[in-house]
Design a protein around this nucleic acid. Sequence first.
DNA 1: CGTTCGGTTGAGCTTTGTCAAACCGCGTGG
DNA 2: CCACGCGGTTTGACAAAGCTCAACCGAACG
Lengths: 248, 248
Amino acid sequence: MTHCLIHKFSYYTDLNKDERALLLQLEDRKISYKAGECIAAKGDPCDHLYILHDGWAYVSSTLDVKLRSIFDVRLNADFVGLSDLAFQHHLHDFYALTNVVVCPFPKKNLGAMFDQSPKLRDVFLLILSREQAIAKERVISIGRRTAIERVAHFLMELNVRHSLLYPSEDTVFDFPLTLDHMGDLLGLSPVHVSRSMSMLKENGYITYNRTRVKILQMDKLITMSGFNPVFLEKPERMIPQELEYAEA
Amino acid sequence: MTHCLIHKFSYYTDLNKDERALLLQLEDRKISYKAGECIAAKGDPCDHLYILHDGWAYVSSTLDVKLRSIFDVRLNADFVGLSDLAFQHHLHDFYALTNVVVCPFPKKNLGAMFDQSPKLRDVFLLILSREQAIAKERVISIGRRTAIERVAHFLMELNVRHSLLYPSEDTVFDFPLTLDHMGDLLGLSPVHVSRSMSMLKENGYITYNRTRVKILQMDKLITMSGFNPVFLEKPERMIPQELEYAEA
DNA sequence: CGTTCGGTTGAGCTTTGTCAAACCGCGTGG
DNA sequence: CCACGCGGTTTGACAAAGCTCAACCGAACG
């Protein structure tokens, strides 16, 4: 995965030479962060977006000393900072969960890119839209599902997102999250997350250790959590009508 | 408020004649729905967006017969259907909460509009971004705040959104939501919402009846709920760098 | 080895949910 | 004009889900 942006965009549409060149321009530098470091913090000037090139990151917001919300986890080829796109200062915090390398690019270059390629613009909109859909699923989970359903649902989400990146591994994935992360993601206490995970293991639905999760009974997890992967679905379902361009 | 789109966009930027004309083209028809009617349902083909011209609407998703999540409430001049922008079929349900009138316009016209005016395109991105920020605040509320804090926070959000529309009324606003709506919005049971509202009234922070809410002690509500209006803030804070155009 | 960080487990407590009854305002129809 | 019924709200008693605290464990790492 040397060119994340191209990889990401071509997931949604076919790219010609010019479009690839435009995307390559964006991805000029690389920056590394160690696990736990802050990539950007609330209040920082927000003039760059990042593409996650390697590792895991997450988007969060800290209210009180002991009150944190994690909105989402960012995997390979995901954008970091997209949620603050239109703001001059970051509204949220962005942390490296593992060691990461990111490609920063100035937000102001986006405008030029959109001018030159409406197609890329629309794919960008599509990506924004997908992120919104993921966020809405989280609201459903936190607001209306029980603890164990939330955990099951989130594991299924991770499994799908992981297998879209690495199609060969469709039931196992890395799992660098701690119970605290899980709790803040799902609106639970870390000890209750632990109990829920244990129950899933006891039922024989999953196995896991500190670093990896393996899905054993996907069907059970799907039915118990009401998981429906449309919101992460393959491009043919997601291409918006605006995207019907004649290939010039 | 005869031209909602123009009103909405000029909240974020100054519009010249051409831009106004472009926006007017979108707003050609009007459709009315009675309170409770469905404007668009999950699975319906998604080829139109709507601007809410009058009344309240909401975005929701129904899981089980007795499990519903409401993601957001839509007020005057808000978009309806934006969250499914990039999908060919709706992912969510859109209901009229009161009698409403909406202006539909075909999604495919957006592309042409963006081609003709990068400025409008960027304002559109900005609006999308603001909606995401509202969604994130909801995640924080549901995941990490107590029942009474959630209610207080939501009332403050409504108060700010209302007063942006009607600056003369800055502590009173219409309130057509039932306890069921509130519960599904905030991840609570309707009876617990009732208790929370009663407590806010007993404390002297608010008064309310079936149709209106009045804020009595805004400072108390703000501190107790950790409300911070940046995520709804005035345009000068929100204009993204891409928006710095020379007025042609 | 000892320390640290994270995970597990148990006991007791708090918050919120459920169920059911009573209530209230309002519109309808006798 | 009054009685009724309907949709929504309030209140109380009780149950359940999830939280907190604290002790303990095990792996990783210096």
